[in-house]
Write a protein that binds this DNA or RNA. Structure first.
Lengths: 306, 306
DNA sequence: CAGTAGATATATCTTTCAGGTATACTACCG
DNA sequence: CGGTAGTATACCTGAAAGATATATCTACTG
């Protein structure tokens, strides 16, 4: 059964004429006649009553016309939806992310993605960075957001945003009045350190590395704090000081002031990661949006600097 | 969109291998690869992830596989039903017939037709012979059964059964004891005559013609009687005598005896009629069955004569 | 580490068949 | 009775499907 012939049949049936149908199909009438004849032979059924002044459908022809039209509609819809799925316009995407990612980068990315690909269902799951890697490997999520660096040969990693690390001080702190703070000056202060996960330095790594470069090892009064809110809360309570990503300022917690670190200008990188072998179209679309948003963000960040 | 390529796609998708699919399709692997590639190009979508040890479907491919399978099922069903409709195995058929036809010929025909074509819906409508012709012309019925002859150039006519006309006499009649009756002997008897319709001699014509051949014009005590039951009832009541088709004996009315006509052996023909230009497959199937049953009936009728 | 097996991709040739052109056939209409 | 409008037939051309041979890649194996 050949679709071309079925198309020809529908044209002839709708036009009730070989001549008109041939014109509509942009072809000559004789080959159209032969094609219809072959279709009839293939089905073993007469589809048209030919007469010298046009054609009439037989009962079988009427039935075939209806069914063929339905089949064509179905086929068109299928082609359309397959195209859209293939281009990542339709589908589902599950993301894992560390809570901090939801402060700044993620919301703008998701907004942009939803605007551009409204027919992709998004599933969002907050989780610890080690879980993100694990869930990526077992396929439960398609992409993840966490603090770099990350070493995993089977995962692709791209930086989404580079953020300054700023000092969070109780507003009662003696250095709170300074516009900038020398990190060294806090060498003996109690530090509140973020959580650390096996083989994933992440934010913890950046904080300790920054202190190391400032020439001291931070005195951890509190370790392994998972949420930025908690860190900021502890700072507000005067338990200690902390180095946090600048976007934490969005939390607007009273009793805490944020100050740049003089000289070192430490940063932390939020990255997006995904399976190297994952060629899914939805994921590609998503990464494209992530990259565009990332460019926009770094551009506006540069502007802020000027 | 070409069905061949879609078929190839389904084969490769189901086999998860170009090689196996090619074998299943009775073709070589290279052209299969090129066809799939062209399908992908046409859709603008990657359908397979190729690797050195086989292929995997993409998300779009999975979707297309499902939809394509459904389309093929639908297409197969369509082809099948169109074939059956085209061969007159499925459809509907509306018949008009004079009541007398239901005595003998019609029941056996309908039984045979239902056995052979159980999926044809049958609609039966008892009507006067002139209505049968009219309803045929306006397309409300597809075939009709009535007594011949019939003159109508746009209708085809075929004889279904030739039946003897027999005399119906009150059992009290003086000739009721004879095994055969000379029609001439009834020249002065009151006759009950069947209904007559414009330009349709039918049963009425046969009766009067038979009497004419016997040398008299029947004395009509009652004319235009529509139902055979009524005629037989009038005979039983002693109102008169009548010539009726032999199958009327199936009515088994008491008080009436049926006697063959000596010498003349008059007959009446029940015919089937249909539109000359009607080429419907269901009608053809029906006529085929009618002819077979007609042959059977005339064969058994000949046997009865021996 | 080289070689082999098993998979898909590419190149080129052959063959098939769809489509074009010319023409025949038929019924209807003036 | 010829013209017109419709479909069918005959024959030819060209595009595209399919076969064959070969290339390429990768995993496995001795």
């Amino acid at each position: 059964m050949d679709l071309r012939r079925l198309r020809y049949f529908v044209a002839v049936a709708e036009e009730r004429s070989f001549n008109r149908a041939a014109r509509r199909l942009h072809m000559a009438q004789p080959p159209l006649s032969t094609q219809i004849k072959q279709l009839e032979k293939e089905l073993g059924v007469r589809l048209f009553e030919r007469s010298s002044r046009g054609v009439r459908l037989t009962e079988a022809g009427e039935l075939l016309l209806e069914e063929a039209q339905r089949i064509f509609v179905q086929l068109d819809q299928t082609v359309s939806i397959v195209r859209r799925v293939g281009h990542g316009e339709v589908g589902r995407l599950t993301l894992g992310f560390v809570p901090s990612a939801s402060n700044e980068a993620l919301p703008t990315i998701l907004r942009a993605f939803r605007d551009r690909f409204p027919e992709v269902e998004l599933f969002l799951r907050e989780m610890r960075p080690d879980r993100i890697v694990q869930r990526l490997h077992d396929g439960q999520i398609d992409a993840g957001f966490l603090y770099l660096p990350l070493e995993d040969a089977s995962l692709n990693v791209e930086c989404v945003s580079r953020e300054a690390l700023v000092l969070a001080l109780p507003e009662t702190h003696s250095l709170a009045s300074e516009p900038e703070v020398e990190l060294r000056a806090l060498a003996d202060e109690p530090f509140i350190l973020p959580a650390r996960y096996q083989r994933m330095p992440g934010l913890y790594g950046q904080v300790t590395e920054t202190c190391r470069r400032a020439g001291f090892v931070p005195d951890a009064v509190q370790k392994d704090v998972w949420l930025m809110q908690t860190i900021v809360g502890l700072v507000a309570a005067g338990i200690g000081v902390a180095l946090v990503p600048a976007s934490v300022r969005n939390l607007r917690r009273t009793g805490v002031v944020y100050r740049p670190v003089r000289g070192l200008s430490p940063t932390v990188e939020l990255g997006v990661i995904w399976r190297r072998e994952d060629t899914g179209a939805v994921l590609s679309s998503f990464l494209q949006v992530v990259r565009e948003e990332s460019r926009d963000r770094s551009a506006s960040a540069r502007e802020e600097l000027c």
